[in-house]
Amino acid sequence: MSEVFLMLVSVTGGTGFVGAHSVAAFLRAGHRVRLLVREPSRVAPALTPLLPDLPSAEDAVEVVTGDVTDEEAVGRAVRGADAVLHAAAVYSFDSRRHASVRRTNERGAEVVLGAARAADANPIIHVSSVAALFPAPGRVVHEDTPVGRPRETYMASKAAAETVARGHQREGAPVVITYPPALLGPHDPRLGDQTARLRDVLRGLMPLWPLGGLPLGDVRDTAELHTRLLTPYGEGSGEGRARHFGPGHYLTTRRYVEVLREVTGRRLPTLFLPARAMLPAGLLADLAQRVCPWHLPAQYGAVYVCACATRVGEGVSTGGIVPRPMAETVGDTVRWLHANGLLSDRQAGTARGDLTPVRAS
């Protein structure tokens, strides 16, 4: 068993889906945590459900108020930290958020990784995305797959941030990159795109799906990966070994709907069409979304992912974590949505009851 280093970890994006689950995993492992957040009022709602044994989730972390594009605030957040987890990003295919996606994701990576490096943090974990590698030149992606050149705003912003992180790696900085797949799981503080999409399917708002597939995993597995990476990254370890894929599965869209049917016991009638044939409709939906005050379930980005996503190659590093079965992940997501009044009894079907207990690390 590897030696455990207890650290002060500075975290950006700690009130988001990946960030909150990672912070909870860090605290359960005995680390101390400092959060950089724009709105301190979001800390308790994000962490309390994940840390029920603590008298106050807010008291368990130190909070610095600021934005990831604010150099002064970021400098205060990382000062004296042993390690940094940069998980802040705007993850959305919503066309109304394109400007904030580009600004936060690329500029945030420049500011945070640069400040963490200046503060001598080790490791500096940059949360990228497997989408940053799409479209890939081969049939699988792996640690040495070049940065993608996608024609979609969110994916392009993550590719730009990935370029920043790889630049630090080439210069010998202790930057470690993780590539989470699309993530589901319980306790999503802001009902992100993937959780909202699953909910839309069960509410009958997505009877039409593109053919293709997507990488999908459990947020709790990615949080465990981040915890296992909290050891000082030694010199001469090599760029490739500083890149790790979030545990997950590649699911065709047909299989995704099948898993939902199995978990809920519902029929969920669905029509599948070629993804590339649906791209023009996705573009039209994005244009309509810019003027429509309501959320539209059809998005160009989601269709584009299905059109260009490929599998993660065998033998890549996932921190030694075996991904949970998708039925467990999807079931816990549906149960959480139902328990919080976001799905009716009919919509949740047979997937009602208690969540899967937290796994021991």
Score class of each variant (00 low, 15 high):
L273F: 11
F245I: 08
T227I: 06
P293F: 07
E235N: 05
P247V: 07
F272H: 15
T231D: 12
T231R: 14
P280Q: 13
A285R: 10
Y256Q: 05
R290I: 01
L251C: 01
L229Y: 08
R243Q: 04
A285C: 09
T270P: 03
A288L: 14
T231Q: 14
G240M: 04
R228H: 06
R243F: 00
L271C: 11
P247Y: 10
H249K: 04
A242C: 09
C292D: 14
P293A: 11
M278L: 15
T252W: 05
P247A: 06
G248F: 01
A277W: 15
D286K: 09
Q289E: 09
L283C: 02
H249A: 02
T227W: 10
P280R: 12
A281E: 00
G236T: 11
G238H: 13
L271Q: 05
C292E: 08
H244G: 01
M278W: 08
V259H: 13
Q289I: 08
T264F: 11
H249P: 01
L251Q: 01
M278N: 02
L268F: 14
L287A: 15
A242K: 13
L279C: 01
T264A: 06
L268E: 12
L279S: 02
V291G: 14
G248R: 04
Y256T: 13
A285F: 04
W294D: 09
L229V: 13
G282A: 00
V263I: 09
L284K: 05
P293I: 01
A242P: 00
G248T: 01
F245W: 03
A285V: 06
A275K: 10
L251M: 14
G265F: 10
P247H: 04
T227K: 11
P293G: 03
M278I: 05
R254A: 05
L229G: 01
L268D: 12
A277M: 15
E258D: 15
R266K: 14
R241S: 14
G236W: 09
G246P: 10
Y256A: 13
L279D: 12
G240Y: 00
R241G: 10
T264D: 05
L273P: 12
L284E: 10
D286P: 13
P293D: 02
V263K: 03
Y250M: 08
A285H: 11
T264H: 11
